[in-house]
Simulated assay, not measured.
Amino acid sequence: MNDVIKMVLNHRSIRSYLDKPLTEEQIKIIVQSAQAAATSSYVQAYSIIGIKNQLQKDKLAELAGNQAYVAKNGHFFVFCLDLHRLEIAAEIEGAKPETIELTLNSTEMFMIGLIDTALAAQNAAIAAESMGLGICYIGGLRNQLKAVTELLQLPKRVIPLFGLSVGYPANLSDQKPRLPLLSVYHDDGYNQDKEQLMEYLHTYDQEISNYYSERTQGARSERWTEAMTKLLQNPKRLEMKQFLKDNKIPLE
């Protein structure tokens, strides 16, 4: 097993950082690494907003649900799906807006943007961890999309998908066990053996329950299936579809 794989397998979210900012060179390397990710049809449908201003960090932390590690880190990145740049590219080439509207509004283009952004972010995360830094993805920015969009002065067709806090770890958090490999990886087609999957999940439930119990000295012993059922029973961010429509991404 080489050092890169060891690093990837050692990943854990870091939520406590030393008071030490990243250098401009580190930021540049992380962004360049993000740009080196694969991209569908060379579209590169993302933009990255770096947040240095502490007042902005504090506001983003508040909007994300008062997550302290959004405000206190070495650097904070916001990864955005960006179809605005494509619109400008078409304008440079003299295309009429109505001729590109169908493509820009398509679910396929939205998915390209989501995938491109996620691939770029994961490259950034791996680059940061290779420098001895810790990272944590922040999906809580989607709690207040309109406010985040206004704060970052984003144009139409640019959607803030998630943040990435990066910094020097103050301490290492425990690593959460992942699902059993055979419940995720399927040979030659999806394994639809329900009984087998339930067996995998029962085993995983016990592992996760033990993990939480040990971590909290018995105060929490939630099973994975229990946590996922709670999530499914409490839908969140149902305003997302309307927000996308208001930002000229109606998903036709």
Rank of each mutant, 00 (worst) to 15 (best):
L18H: 14
K146H: 00
Q35P: 00
A147M: 13
G163F: 01
Q153M: 11
A121V: 01
L133Y: 10
G50L: 05
M198D: 01
L232A: 11
Q217R: 08
T39N: 03
V166F: 06
H75F: 15
S16L: 05
E98H: 15
L244W: 05
I14Y: 02
K146P: 03
N10T: 00
V8R: 06
L231W: 03
N10M: 09
S183V: 13
G50C: 03
K20L: 12
E222I: 14
A127E: 10
L141R: 01
A37D: 02
Q206H: 05
L154V: 05
V184L: 14
D82F: 04
Y190I: 02
D187C: 06
V43N: 03
I138Y: 05
M7G: 13
Y168I: 13
D205R: 04
I27R: 03
E108D: 09
A95F: 14
I92K: 13
G132M: 00
K57W: 02
K194C: 06
S209E: 09
Y190F: 01
L141P: 01
P97F: 13
D174Q: 15
I49P: 08
A71W: 06
G139R: 09
L18Q: 15
V8D: 06
A170S: 13
I126A: 09
V158T: 12
S213M: 01
M131G: 04
M228Y: 10
A128C: 04
I49Y: 07
P180M: 05
Y42F: 15
H11Y: 14
M131N: 03
H84Y: 14
A170N: 15
M1W: 13
A37W: 00
D174R: 15
L201G: 09
L86Y: 15
D246F: 05
A170P: 06
A120I: 10
A95V: 13
N2Q: 03
T23S: 07
M7W: 10
W224M: 11
E252Q: 12
Q44N: 12
K230W: 02
D205K: 09
S41P: 11
I92A: 15
Q122K: 15
A120S: 03
K28F: 12
K146Q: 13
S173Q: 13
P250Q: 11
N66E: 08
K241E: 11
T99Q: 07
A124C: 06
I49T: 09
